[in-house]
Design a protein around this nucleic acid. Structure first.
Lengths: 130, 130
DNA sequence: TAGTTATTGTTATAATATAACATAGTGTAA
DNA sequence: TTACACTATGTTATATTATAACAATAACTA
């Protein structure tokens, strides 16, 4: 079990928005959407995002500069992430595969080095766009 | 064999710079370094970078917004990339492992979908920083 | 050699992210 | 309960990364 983090007001507002979204959200789109709730500046958004990423409640899709809620309930290791990204509709799905995460966590590079932290982004076409 | 691409002047200048570098280069750092060669605007850099990425001569390190020359001579599939990134010194190394690329190319998600295109970034500490 | 396409040059601006500093709340230990 | 450390907040300004729009030029090709 890992420690439960109680979110602060800004963190909660921003997490709720991302969690309800069906697609990854970008920082300035988040900012626009929470301005009515009193969050007025980019930095307020980025600070909340940083914290949410740190505690594993959300993930950043690096190739898209966008944020998605973690839907991997067994994701103790928030730092080992994998996604599939549709190149047409931009749908992003978090992949939770025990086999994959086991393979990657055990992968050794040429120097015999292992990595518990990684980010993998697969690109292709989703069911609908195929 | 895949088609040989002869680089244009700007592409060659920018590729040479990245290829000689021991670390990933950022777009505006590249811009600064090639201004003496007549490349004055960001767009000239980004256009060359886009093309170089497209033809597989360089790769973008998404989590760092930086570019590195492809050192994987057998890398026919420029779109299937893996790197290790040192979280202290930021050293980036391209991983060329037949096993890894085979595993990832054959990986099937829950819908049975396979992906020939992916980007994997491992994070950890390099030899020196360990 | 005309037509097409890719590349270049240029200015302006959009989108993403952080620096710096002041203030306020929260937990905790003497 | 007060002083301390720590985290979060609010705010303005600015840095960094990337693209839009348009004109001109070079390279390819039928």
């Amino acid at each position: 079990m890992h420690k439960e983090h109680s979110l602060t007001k800004n963190q909660q507002i921003i997490f709720d928005l991302i969690d309800k979204s069906t697609e990854p959200l970008k920082a300035y789109s988040i900012l626009f959407n929470v301005q009515k709730k009193g969050i007025k500046a980019p930095l307020q958004v980025y600070r909340a995002l940083d914290k949410l990423v740190e505690i594993g409640k959300i993930h950043k899709i690096e190739s898209r500069n966008a944020f998605i809620a973690c839907h991997n309930s067994s994701c103790q290791v928030a730092k080992a992430t994998a996604f599939s990204i549709c190149e047409i509709c931009e749908k992003v799905t978090e992949i939770s595969s025990a086999g994959l995460s086991k393979y990657l966590a055990n992968f050794k590079d040429k120097d015999g080095m292992k990595y518990s932290k990684y980010n993998l982004e697969f690109f292709g076409l989703c069911k609908k766009c195929r």
